[in-house]
């Protein structure tokens, strides 16, 4: 198997006395979808920020394409970030420009497309996320779910090689979240992107994920299927799974997305 796109080696992250990640070792394989699940405040968003180089680990290394991201200079970091498509948990839209301008931003700043081409592409992307006609609004005028969708549209604009999405479907109704999962699934099949998705949508995300990482008490455990979680011997994981996700046994009867 090829080298994983992202690899955590002995990563520890603390805030003061609080240990968020405790010598974590995990792989995010190239071309696969990994879902990170775990209770609120366990460090899922922090893990994504570590991958993005926005935070630095207290010890250990985070390898992106075989390079340690916390040892990178500004220029290298910039280069590696051109490969990322990122959705923040709070969407993090630029709030003094319109929805259209937000989605157009990556194209305007990083490509030399003409104004007309940019307009076409943005309109197409907005339509994909059911945002046609909302291009002139400002982020403050959007609902929470709409902000998420604008954030997704912006993240996917340059067809990133590595997608990092923090709760892409939280706050969206089931129809749209299904639609978004389908979109991930399609683009993933088509381009073979590596994606890392933070989600609470278990067991639904198993239809999409090649592996699920459970984050609990500073430890990450990788599972290849829902059954594997159920057969886990770790009592902490069992109780965590039962309390946060209910009986996941039903997943087999769940309709497949594709």
């Amino acid at each position: 198997m090829s080298e994983p796109a992202i690899r955590f080696i002995d990563v520890t992250k603390k805030f003061g006395k609080q240990v968020v990640l405790d010598r974590v070792n995990v792989d995010f394989p190239t071309g696969m979808t990994t879902v990170i699940a775990g209770g609120s405040g366990q460090g899922k968003s922090v893990s994504l920020k570590l991958i993005l180089g926005l935070m630095k680990p207290d010890s250990g290394r985070i390898m992106v394409d075989g390079q340690d991201i916390s040892a990178m200079g500004r220029r290298e970091l910039n280069r590696i970030r051109t490969e990322f498509g990122v959705l923040f948990q709070g969407a993090a839209l630029l709030d003094s420009i319109t929805v259209f301008e937000n989605v157009a931003l990556p194209l305007e700043e990083r490509t030399s497309l003409s104004r007309q081409e940019i307009k076409e592409r943005v309109e197409e992307m907005l339509a994909r996320f059911d945002l046609t006609g909302h291009g002139d609004k400002y982020p403050a005028q959007l609902s929470g779910g709409m902000k998420k969708r604008v954030g997704l549209a912006r993240a996917l604009m340059l067809q990133p090689r590595i997608m990092l999405f923090d709760e892409p479907t939280t706050g969206l109704d089931p129809k749209i979240s299904m639609e978004i999962y389908r979109l991930f699934f399609e683009t993933q099949k088509k381009y073979g992107f590596t994606s890392i998705i933070v989600s609470h949508d278990i067991p639904k995300v198993f239809n999409l994920a090649d592996q699920v990482i459970l984050l609990n008490n500073g430890h990450m455990t990788t599972f290849a299927s829902p059954e594997e979680i159920q057969h886990s011997a770790d009592p902490e994981i069992i109780s965590f799974v039962e309390t946060t996700m209910g009986q996941i046994y039903v997943s087999k009867e769940m309709e497949k997305i594709s």
Binding site: V86, F88, E109
Partner: peptide, 25 residues
């Protein structure tokens, strides 16, 4: 105030993650 608010609402981080230099921008 403008830049402080952008920092607090992760807009500066978002720019960096889009590989857009916040200084130039």
């Amino acid at each position: 105030a403008e830049i402080g608010i952008m920092r607090n609402s992760e807009q500066l981080d978002a720019l960096e993650c889009m590989a857009i230099d916040p200084f130039r921008f």
